[in-house]
Design a protein around this nucleic acid. Structure first.
Lengths: 226, 226
DNA sequence: AATCATGTTAACAGCTTGTTAAACACCGAT
DNA sequence: ATCGGTGTTTAACAAGCTGTTAACATGATT
């Protein structure tokens, strides 16, 4: 499988070196040189892993990570920090997490961390059932959709459809895929039924315009969070 | 089981780092960045543990804890304090079963405390069988439901069902889960039987309208205390 | 413009749940 | 064994909710 990595690093030469090395190891790396473009890029595509420099001029790595987490709670994030930066805030955590790597580091070291992450995210079938969707929080096992001020209870099917969209966020799901997964079959009437559900879900989500179920004509749907 | 943790921390970076690390360890963490939203969130969902920063601008952690305690006497609360904080202030609370941790701390340290809490509260389940339900007090081992003026003795099954609802308060229990747990099996007639029990329990609890067993159509039931 | 795909709403049929009462099963005492 | 009492299950009916379908509106593609 082609592993897609988002690398956000303001130091152009360091960024290039990391990208180049990782690409030689067979990863597909997208490099952004500031936090802003990093976020934008993340929103436009689906990545298996993010590597964020903590110290960057305009937007630091934590801020970028927070915004990424608003959209995707599951993607692993690896922070790159300088030793000097580890003050009382981060200090304790760097020791315990596989989530932090301190400069300077070797490519092998970095690759080891990456492999640990990917093994974990592949091997874990302990599926997280809570998704953040803009200002909403959707719990697919409790069938609840929490908004800013209200909590709505979804039906099982509504939850099935929304859950599937969440799991495949930023990816186009074919009509047939959704029908097979939720209804177990695919015919004209079930398709129309699905359209009704999409319509209902859009209504539920309309309070936050950054969350959208976008139709791809003749193909299917895609859940986008901007 | 998926352990739900409520984290109230006003420092956004620190909050994020803690949340992210705990989620990597497999916990389900909800982060609130002020006391007010922390309390609201607590009222909308069920948590197994609360982590509260003591020093927060508008509402400090102790105030939040007091308000949480008004509703739930059992949930463990872990306070995060700075070293400079007066120890005797904190000790008053730690005596009541809660604990505190001083900044800075490592993820391992935090996780250790969490595990201690959860082990204790799991072990406690077999000992502590008394639940407060609005103006009622339900003792699941003595099979008694004390109201304002009367004491009713429940049957074993009535008590089993109410006990299960209490243990999963503010959480949707699937019909199947209740049937498996109380009846050991799940079929149509047992389901109807359960409905009869729910009906009876509602009758017993009708003196206090803040206590409600709410049906989630096609899904199950949830005990709510407003 | 013509055609097909999708968006949206409302109504209906079928299934789920609430409730009451009767039937059944179990148990101890007579 | 019979009886009464207690607790649970089954039956029956009422009320409510959900998913599907139909019908019509809008949008995309050729």
């Amino acid at each position: 499988m082609n592993t897609k990595i988002l690398l956000v690093e303001d130091d152009a030469s360091l960024g290039f070196v990391i990208k180049d090395n990782l690409e030689m190891k067979g990863y597909n790396v997208t490099l952004c040189n500031d936090g802003e473009s990093g976020e934008n890029t993340f929103h436009q595509d689906a990545f298996d892993l993010c590597i964020l420099d903590v110290m960057m001029p305009r937007k630091d790595g934590f801020t970028v990570a927070r915004n990424i987490r608003k959209k995707d709670q599951q993607v692993p994030i690896l922070f790159v920090t300088a030793k000097s930066m580890l003050e009382d805030k981060v200090e304790g955590f760097s020791a315990g997490g596989d989530d932090y790597i301190t400069k300077p580091f070797s490519v092998e070291e970095l690759q080891m961390r990456i492999e640990v992450f990917l093994r974990r995210s592949n091997g874990k079938d302990s599926v997280d059932t809570v998704f953040k969707l803009g200002k909403f929080e959707f719990d697919s096992s409790n069938l609840t959709l929490k908004g800013a001020s209200s909590v709505r209870t979804l039906t099982q099917k509504e939850s099935d459809v929304l859950g599937l969209l969440c799991k495949n966020r930023e990816r186009v799901l074919k009509r047939e895929e959704i029908l097979k997964a939720v209804w177990g079959d695919d015919d004209y009437f079930l398709g129309r039924s699905m359209d009704v559900f999409i319509s209902k879900l859009r209504k539920y989500l309309k309070d936050d315009p950054t969350v959208q179920i976008v139709n791809y004509h003749g193909i299917g749907f895609r859940l986008e969070v901007k």
